[in-house]
Simulated scan of single mutants.
Amino acid sequence: MPYDHRKTVRRALALALAATGCCATLAGCGAPQASPQEGGKQPSPPSASAGRPTRPPAASTGAPSAEAGGTGGSTGSVDASGANPGSRSLAGRTVVIDPGHNPGNFRHSKEINQKVDIGTNRKECDTTGTSTNAGYTEASFTLDVSHRLRDLLTARGAKVVLTHDAERPWGPCIDERARIGNAAAADAVVSVHADGSAVGNRGFHVILPARVRGGSADTADIVGPSRELGEGIADHFARTTGTEPSNYLGSGTGLDVRDDLGGLNLSTVPKVFVECGNMRDPKDAQLLTSATWRQKAARGIADGIATYLEG
């Protein structure tokens, strides 16, 4: 039979079209797409995206999560936390999450500038926090990551308490934040932040309490366990997000010890601050404004907390 070139071409085209149509019908048949990045001073309200996983019941109530950024938003998936399906390894444990600053602080400078007792001296009640050059605020970032972290820990069985959920016009002050963790008899407290340093200063760091004693402050009992908590978070944060420890603090360890933070000085339970990156550096800002990266950050913190609590 003579060779029919046209028939061969038609068959090749049909096979190519069939393969394309098959891929188009399968969610995730290609590489996952990065979620849109955020900008502006306030994130847009979350939309009811089709297919978004349902959150598990949260241990705290308040304003809804700021999830502008689409895919990669806050999820209740246990698999996303890295735990085995059905795992309740943190049942009976209490974790307090402290979202740094408050979106309303910008409108209440008089209140947040009032000084409070931090044991060793007096310091401003709170600050507004920093922002990216495009105007994405630290307060919006910390609340979003805190919601994601809450969901991951709740999925593992932990009781989670937020120091605030933007349900109040400003604050709470740094001394009240410490008291919330103490009153909850928390097994661990994590204060979520992002830094505002010079361009070129990149990476995350975890702030640990120094040994402080003065007035109502005495950190002797929490210095050791807080370091253990912080080391676990630094390790998992680096592995999960793929980011490096700070190149400007901590000598490459990702750990920084401070004695001037009221939230640490006044704590009677293990507590650390996590500075997830530098909002003023364009490369770090690109990460911090990605909803997908923020989910990784929350998972890294959650894994670090779990490692500490599971011993």
Rank of each mutant, 00 (worst) to 15 (best):
G311Y: 06
G214K: 12
I301F: 00
N182T: 09
L288E: 07
Q33H: 13
D259S: 15
P103N: 03
L208W: 02
S251W: 06
G73C: 06
S44E: 12
A306W: 04
G254S: 15
W293N: 00
V95E: 00
D195M: 08
R55P: 11
S191P: 03
I180F: 06
P209E: 08
V96A: 11
G300P: 02
A14G: 08
D98K: 12
G100L: 01
V116D: 06
Y136Q: 10
L255A: 15
S87I: 02
S44I: 00
K271R: 15
T292K: 06
T243H: 07
K7Q: 09
K110E: 13
H205K: 04
E228I: 04
P36E: 05
I180A: 05
C173K: 03
A83N: 06
H108I: 11
L229V: 04
S140I: 03
A58E: 05
R211M: 09
D303T: 08
A14N: 01
E176N: 11
L13V: 15
G242N: 11
R11P: 01
V189L: 12
S87F: 06
R88Q: 13
A134W: 07
G215R: 09
K283D: 15
D303F: 01
A12R: 09
G250C: 13
V269T: 09
D175E: 08
V161P: 05
G311W: 08
N113M: 07
T130D: 05
D151H: 13
R227F: 02
N133G: 11
E244S: 15
T253I: 05
T61E: 12
S251H: 14
F204E: 02
A91Q: 14
A50T: 06
K115I: 09
D165G: 12
L287T: 04
D195G: 07
G224W: 00
I112S: 04
R177V: 02
Q295I: 02
N201D: 13
E244R: 15
S267H: 01
L143N: 06
G252R: 10
C125M: 03
P57F: 11
T268D: 10
G171S: 05
R52I: 01
R299P: 00
G250W: 07
G224Q: 15
S44W: 02
T154A: 15
Y136V: 13
G72S: 12
A139W: 02
A220V: 08
V212N: 07
T132P: 00
D235R: 15
G30M: 11
D260A: 11
D303L: 14
G242S: 10
D4F: 02
L26V: 15
D281G: 04
L13Q: 09
T240N: 05
H5K: 07
A188Q: 13
E167Q: 15
P270I: 01
A83C: 15
T307E: 14
V161E: 04
Y308E: 01
A178R: 02
A139C: 01
G39D: 07
T120C: 07
R55K: 12
L143C: 00
A188E: 03
V95W: 09
D117N: 14
A210V: 04
V189I: 13
L255E: 09
A234S: 13
R299S: 11
E167I: 04
R156S: 10
L249S: 05
G129E: 06
A34G: 04
